[in-house]
Write a protein that binds this DNA or RNA. Structure first.
Length: 814
DNA sequence: AGCACGCCGACT
DNA sequence: GTCGGCGTGCTC
């Protein structure tokens, strides 16, 4: 048998399968999707079996050496292959779609601990062992032990140059070892070895004073299951030595077994209660259910206003899918994978769910993922990369808040989970549901063209009204001499809610959570000496750090520019808001969520819990409080400054603002109490603010689409961003220029090629960045053309060190 | 990406 | 004359 293997060398030259013979003794272990160790040139590498074929029938595949010259697979790494044929083919599709190597697409599908690492060792040969070296040094060291090459380089920098000579002389040899980072957790467990009859005989022989032993035996008999040793000790209060005694009598067995780390081990989940559907929910669900039952591919856009009960529809669809013996994936944006959401799924589906999110340790993540591979669960809930859950009969994928930008991966492979989901569901004849109150323009446009079936839910559960939105023109406030950050109407509404003991959410529309250091005398900002970007202040150790290269400096006491001592960090402004609240409303209880208060692990959840249980009047925060939160007593939402995201140099700025205002407004009045939303702005006339005020997605959509058409942006045009980087400007410009000249004559008439221009972040890690932008409507040969470009760029990289990256459908143009 | 092989400058 | 610089080419 011959295996085709993709090796873990993520470059173009090796981006193809290599053929290996499968030795007979490994044949039962090797399958399509196996992770294997293979010799590759002089070294050993990890690889993935993508195909198996019979040598007798077909000889070796085209391009491979003859049968006799094939090397053999050396090892199989897992007892169950981590990949399915479907995922292997999906990875191939990704490599074409996103211009990445096949292996990098395969790797992104797997938990990080499975990635291979090759270690290079130096060891003595028989010849050296026969004649021990007299001089102290590397050779003598090697006589006693083998040494990792990297260590030898550090410890014997002088002698390392002689190693090739020693190899030739037959004194030492290299060997290579492939390892991964898998760790498996083990616990001791106690098993009863006695049958019921034997137990009856044994019990009377136990003396009265050993009632704990008796208790244990009965306990084990009752459950008929092995029990973790730690539980035994806490529940019976037995001493370890007593337990050993029972083992010696042959009544019980104590053994080490492997367990899956379970992040939710200490939690119990009540069985969830189903609420009856509203008419809107029922209509949507009926259409989805029909598609699920039909077993054909279908894709839906579920456009439901905030609070319309989309989650209930999702749950029902998942349940239906499981009933038919198929599996389901539920994707959420990273930040809304909250304990609340996990709880909801655990309550409904119990231990049939695996939860994959970034807060897990690598080991926990691996264990959750293994539940899927081993078929222990049928539902996967997680962020972006959970789209690759290795189910064998995947019937349903749901993407909640599908407009969220976190579904796009910003490193290679630069995939969009929405597109990958579509591809998987086409291949599996499955159903895709995209859900949002504010769909991405691209998505809605495809829905209007029939690529997604549009399902609308325009009413909240219980016919609760959408909150009343008040837009406040902050310029008026200034004219009225109100220089506070709270408008008069927001002020009086806060007063009102405090009196009624209802809760308030205040939202500061700032991008991300970053804070920077600026001199108040001369305006100098601390920036990275290697990247054109300002440093981010970290309160915990009073340092400023560069997000891109990790450069760190201590907080200066004086401005490096003008020596002024008035240099300080500017935060997201939440502290300032908090201070003013305290001043205006004495005794107000504010729960602040920002970088400072949520950096500790678990702090996020803790703060939300405090708010939920009424230990705060106001929840004050940035982006992170915009979505998913559902607190019954919140009846007022205030947006302090709605404009801040409006003036970003991004063609999606209006869309982002509309989405944010709609989402944050959706937090108010979700239950019995009616809600109000106050939006403070300096541009109340802007259409994204106006339409958000009226909860009018469609009008926003139409107006924004006109702008996109005019400016030639998605969804009318598709984009490809090509970025070049190099240490010096002339070289990088020359490369970008050459590429532009190569592409231009090969592109369709209607395609626009912009650039080269400097990237918005013109330098990262001391490398200058220039970019080209392709805007196109119909370019059937684009994938091939870009593949050619990639091959060319590979040469430039080797010869001149110019790096090129291609981002298909970029989300951020940085 | 590594690694080996191979062809030209500064040292014994 | 050799050691070692990194250009070139290959990896089943």
């Amino acid at each position: 048998m011959i295996a085709q293997v993709i090796v873990e060398v993520p470059v173009n030259r090796t981006n193809r399968p290599f053929d290996y013979a499968v030795p007979e003794w490994l044949e039962p272990m090797v399958a399509i999707g196996s992770r294997v160790v293979v010799p590759f040139g002089p070294r050993k590498l990890q690889g993935y079996v993508i195909n198996l074929y019979d040598a007798e029938e077909s000889g070796t595949q085209e391009g491979a050496p003859s049968l006799l010259k094939l090397k053999e697979i050396e090892q199989v790494q897992d007892d169950v292959p981590p990949l399915t044929l479907e995922l292997i083919q999906l990875a191939e599709w990704m490599s074409r779609q996103y211009l990445c190597t096949w292996v990098s697409a395969l790797q992104v599908m797997l938990p990080a601990v499975l990635k291979g690492k090759t270690k290079k060792w130096l060891s003595a040969t028989e010849q050296l062992l026969a004649g021990p070296p007299q001089q102290p040094g590397l050779l003598q060291e090697l006589y006693w032990r083998r040494i990792e090459f990297e260590e030898a380089e550090k410890q014997f920098p002088q002698e390392i140059k002689q190693v090739p000579g020693w190899v030739k002389a037959g004194l030492v040899s290299f060997d290579y070892q492939v390892t991964d980072k898998i760790t498996r957790k083990q616990i001791s467990q106690v098993t009863l070895l006695l049958s019921d009859e034997e137990l009856v005989q044994v019990l009377p022989t136990i003396p009265e004073r050993s009632r704990r032993a008796r208790q244990l035996l009965l306990l084990l008999q009752e459950t008929r299951e092995p029990m973790p040793l730690s539980d035994v000790l806490t529940e019976t209060g037995m001493a370890r030595s007593t337990l050993k005694g029972l083992e010696q009598k042959g009544w019980i067995r104590i053994e080490q077994v492997e367990v899956f780390r379970d992040p939710y081990a200490n939690r119990t989940f009540a069985k969830g209660v189903k609420h009856p559907f509203t008419t809107w929910q029922q209509l949507a669900y009926t259409a989805i259910e029909a598609a699920i039952n039909g077993g054909e591919h279908a894709a839906f856009l579920l456009h439901g206003v905030t609070g319309s009960g989309k989650t209930e529809v999702y749950m029902e669809a998942i349940e239906r899918t499981l009933d038919l013996g198929r599996e389901a994936i539920f994707l959420v944006p990273e930040i809304s994978l909250t304990p609340q959401m996990v709880k909801r799924f655990k309550e409904r589906f119990g231990d049939r769910v695996a939860v994959l999110h970034s807060a897990l340790s690598q080991g926990e993540r691996y264990d959750e993922w293994r539940k899927i591979v081993h078929g222990h669960v049928q539902v996967a809930v997680g962020a972006r990369s959970a789209i690759f859950a290795p189910f064998k009969n995947l019937g349903l994928v749901i993407i909640d808040e599908e407009h969220e930008s976190s579904y796009k991966q910003e490193e290679t492979p630069r995939y969009h989970a929405r597109d990958v989901a579509m591809q998987r569901m086409k291949n599996n004849n499955g159903v895709l549901i995209l859900g949002s109150a504010t769909p991405a323009l691209e998505t809605y446009a495809l829905a209007t063209r029939g690529r997604y079936r549009l399902l609308t839910m325009s009413e909240r559960v219980g016919k609760r009204p959408l909150p009343t939105v008040h837009v406040v023109d902050m310029r008026d406030e200034l004219r009225q001499e109100n220089r506070s950050m709270f408008s008069r109407s927001l002020f009086s509404l806060i007063e009102d809610r405090l009196a009624k003991q209802e809760q308030i959410v205040l939202f500061l529309n700032r991008r991300g959570f970053s804070t920077f250091v600026m001199c108040r005398s001369c305006g100098y900002t601390l920036s990275c000496p290697h990247c054109d970007i300002s440093l981010t202040y970290h309160k915990t150790n009073h340092t400023s750090r560069c997000h891109y290269c990790g450069y760190t400096v201590a907080q200066p006491q004086h401005c490096p520019e003008c020596q002024s001592p008035h240099i300080r960090f500017f935060g997201t402004g939440t502290q300032k808001v908090e201070a003013e609240l305290a001043q205006l409303f004495p005794g107000i209880r504010v729960i602040r969520m920002d970088v400072d208060t949520t950096s500790r692990k678990g702090a996020h959840e803790e703060l939300l819990d405090r708010f939920r249980t009424g230990q705060g009047d106001v929840l004050l925060g940035t982006q992170m409080i915009a979505k998913g939160l559902d607190f019954p007593k919140v009846t007022l939402v205030g947006v302090i400054a709605a404009d801040t995201s409006l003036h970003l140099p991004d063609f999606r700025a209006a869309e982002k603002t509309f989405q944010l205002l709609t989402q944050v407004g959706g937090r108010a009045g979700r239950h019995e109490l009616k809600g109000d939303v106050v939006i403070q702005t300096y541009t109340p006339e802007h259409f994204s603010i106006q339409h958000a005020t009226h909860h009018d997605y469609l009008s926003f959509y139409e107006e924004e689409m006109r702008h996109r058409r005019q400016a030639g942006y998605p969804p009318y045009f598709r984009l490809v961003l090509i970025t070049f980087s190099h240490e010096d400007v002339p070289t990088v410009i020359r490369a970008a220029d050459l590429m532009a000249q190569y592409l231009k004559p090969r592109l369709a008439e209607t395609t626009r090629l912009l650039g080269p221009v400097a990237s918005p972040i013109a330098r990262i890690k001391d490398r200058f960045r220039f970019q080209l932008m392709l805007k196109y409507r119909d370019e059937p040969k684009l994938a091939d053309l870009l593949a050619q470009a990639t091959a060319q760029a590979q040469e430039w990289q080797k010869q001149h060190g110019v790096l090129m990256t291609i981002d298909v459908d970029p989300q951020v143009l940085l």
